[in-house]
């Protein structure tokens, strides 16, 4: 019997037509891919992280390829929330796919203010809070490295918006379940993980770090086993939906996350190499469901 699987996903208050999203920082503001990738096939697009003011990012070199991975230190370059709303959002929100806005800040107030601004704007389906940024006021430790700071940011954003709220966790912690539970209790509707793993590379000829910023975030296939383990742990620690991210290159990678219990997945670095891959991943998930006789996406977790 041939079945037509239902891929629609409910991640808390956010409805997605399917579980495949583009990850922040790897799809620009979405519109860069318009006309090339059939974006309306996807569950959603998470745009490049936005701050209150435009940011210029880090000096080059910003990239280094590593075995099966990519180190980046873009430094959160972005056009700022105002220009995003005026220049990018109109074309993006006209698409029939979920628009998720990723935000970042130096202080709890930054996040709160950003969420307040976005709350008033039409065409945004959810906010994703990047808590891998340094808390400038608190000595520069990442918000996401400490359950109290993570919870403070989440609560502040929660107060400022009624939009579905996803908190994106940093993997650079000892126990991911502590942070996951903290943001759940502070009002997150869903969590997504993982952001990049902190890493570095040294040029032995020049005898200095390759990246101008010394450190960068590692992404790509190299991080998938770590990401999958953390998603597995987070799924079992919280009662809100978990979105899996990290090293997803193809449908079988995505299925590992969905079987681990992720409600949806985000494709990051793979899009940089193969811009059409997210649509192929979606088709591969559909095929797997047909072949295994699973009619509803909620039947995937093991």
């Amino acid at each position: 019997m041939s079945i037509n699987p239902d891929l629609a996903v409910k991640t808390g208050p956010l409805n997605l037509k399917n579980p495949v999203l583009l990850a922040s920082g790897t799809c620009g503001y979405g519109i860069e891919l318009q006309g090339f990738v059939d974006l309306e096939k996807l569950g959603g697009i998470v745009v490049k992280g936005l701050s209150l003011e435009p940011r210029s990012g880090n000096p080059p070199p910003r990239l280094m390829e590593t075995p099966c991975g990519l180190l980046n230190s873009i430094g959160l370059e972005n056009v700022g929330v105002d220009r995003f709303i005026s220049d990018k959002l109109p074309a993006l929100s006209a698409l029939d796919t979920a628009v998720i806005v990723n935000i970042l800040g130096d202080s709890v107030r930054d996040y709160q203010e950003l969420a307040g601004i976005l709350d008033q704007v039409r065409g945004i389906d959810a906010i994703e809070v990047n808590i891998s940024c340094p808390n400038v006021r608190a000595g520069g430790a990442a918000f996401g490295s400490d359950p109290d700071m993570a919870s403070e940011v989440t609560a502040a954003v929660r107060k400022a918006t009624s939009l579905p709220l996803i908190v994106k966790l940093s993997p650079n912690v000892t126990d991911i379940t502590l942070i996951a539970r903290a943001v759940e209790h502070a009002g997150a509707d869903a969590i997504s993980l993982i952001n990049t793993l902190l890493g570095m590379s040294i040029d032995i000829k020049a005898r200095r770090p390759v990246l101008a910023n010394t450190f960068g975030g590692l992404s790509g296939p190299a991080i998938k086993p770590v990401a999958l383990r953390m998603v597995w742990q987070a799924v079992r620690a919280v009662n809100i939906p978990v979105i899996g991210i990290g090293g997803i290159q193809n449908a079988s990678d995505a299925l590992e996350f969905l079987l681990a219990g992720a409600a949806a997945v985000q494709v990051g670095t793979a899009t940089l190499v193969d811009p059409l891959v997210s649509v192929q991943i979606l088709e591969g998930i559909r095929m797997y469901m047909k072949e295994t006789g699973i009619s509803d996406i909620s039947g995937l977790p093991i």
Partner: peptide, 25 residues
Amino acid sequence: RMACGMGLCLGCAVPGSRGDDSADS
């Protein structure tokens, strides 16, 4: 050094001269 070639990742940055509009960052 470049990753995507399509303006998605903002990795291939070079310093723009001050006052040049195309270097908006």
